[in-house]
């Protein structure tokens, strides 16, 4: 009896670039993160072939989740065709055999920097957000171990005080991206630098969102059907960016989050930030029949 008779034919034990133990750790931390929504779980961030600060946290999560049957979409500020998005997407498909897409509706895994697509995500999809600064308390408590203690105690008085101070100084809350939000009524998280427009999409969503910071080595999650409530005073309503009445110069759609394009005459033009959503709109205008999903916002209002 020889060794080869006892064993199967050799084949790659794992795919998706990461070694099995790295993936196992990430899986465990993701499960923990799902079990305690919004709570930051530390993990041993591995080296991946992109530089820290360029989405390594998100990439490790996606590499752990990806399988040959996956369909991956990668966006950078809403665009599928940026250099970073394209190279991460290609890397993912090369190391896993997964197929690539730009279409939100087709994707099973969506890795994103700074945006959530305009078309609603479903229960079969996972959104992976790249997070540069996972700690919402950093601004009020520079000591990280004290900050963790504060999370453990739900001690968010300082966080609220920061909002109070901004109201006193400028009459409004001066937080754009990374607006802090209470998850499941217990942990305050910073939802990565997505605009205020997108924070609302996380509330009671159908899909799972995993947020991962590679440099800071933290994973946290928003499971489906979980409350995500931006920290706001009862009498000072949460305001999303004033984009409801802007029209995309290329596709003609109105009522979605826009990128501002400076014009030569000094004025501002606008293009819809979710680039593939814009492509679909152009296609429809030109007589095509693209499948456009339900959108979170309708006529500039959250549906």
């Amino acid at each position: 009896m020889s060794l080869s008779e006892l064993t199967g034919r050799w084949k790659a034990f794992s795919y998706g670039f990461l070694d099995p133990s790295a993936k196992r750790e990430l899986r465990r931390k993701m499960i923990k993160a799902v079990a305690v929504p919004g709570c930051q779980m530390p993990y041993a961030s591995r080296e991946v072939p992109i530089a820290r600060g360029w989405g390594t946290g998100g990439l490790q999560v996606t590499l752990t989740l990806v399988k040959p049957a996956s369909v991956v979409k990668v966006i950078d500020q809403g665009a599928d065709d940026s250099v970073n998005a394209a190279s991460i997407r290609r890397f993912l498909s090369r190391v896993s055999g997964a197929s690539e897409t730009w279409d939100t509706l087709d994707a099973t895994l969506i890795q994103s920097r700074h945006r959530i697509p305009e078309e609603r995500l479903s229960r079969d999809q996972i959104l992976i957000l790249q997070v540069p600064n996972p700690e919402p308390l950093r601004g009020v408590e520079p000591n990280m171990s004290t900050a963790r203690q504060m999370h453990a105690d739900a001690d968010y008085g300082r966080m609220w005080l920061q909002l109070y101070e901004q109201m006193v100084r400028s009459g409004r809350v001066m937080l754009g991206a990374s607006y802090p939000a209470m998850v499941n009524g217990r942990h305050v998280m910073t939802p990565s630098p997505i605009p205020r427009w997108d924070v609302k999409k996380l509330h009671m969503a159908e899909h799972l969102t995993i947020l991962s910071a590679g440099r800071e080595k933290r994973i946290f999650a928003v499971p489906p059907h979980t409350r995500v409530e931006p920290l706001v005073f009862d009498d000072v309503p949460y305001k999303v960016e004033d984009h409801a009445n802007l029209t995309c110069a290329r596709s003609g759609v109105t009522g979605y989050f826009m990128n501002e394009i400076p014009q030569e005459d000094g004025s501002a033009g606008y293009e819809v930030s979710d680039s593939h959503f814009g492509i679909k709109a152009i296609d429809a205008r030109d007589g095509g029949t693209p499948t456009v999903g339900q959108t979170w916002y309708k006529n500039g209002e959250l549906a």
């Binding site: 001690d155 008085g157 300082r158 109201m167 006193v168 005073f233 009862d234």
Partner: peptide
Amino acid sequence: HSSSGNVAERLLVAGERRFAV
């Protein structure tokens, strides 16, 4: 922080969430 904020912190910890109050 502002003096009023120092006082408000106490109220915030106790759960007050109305800015005007």
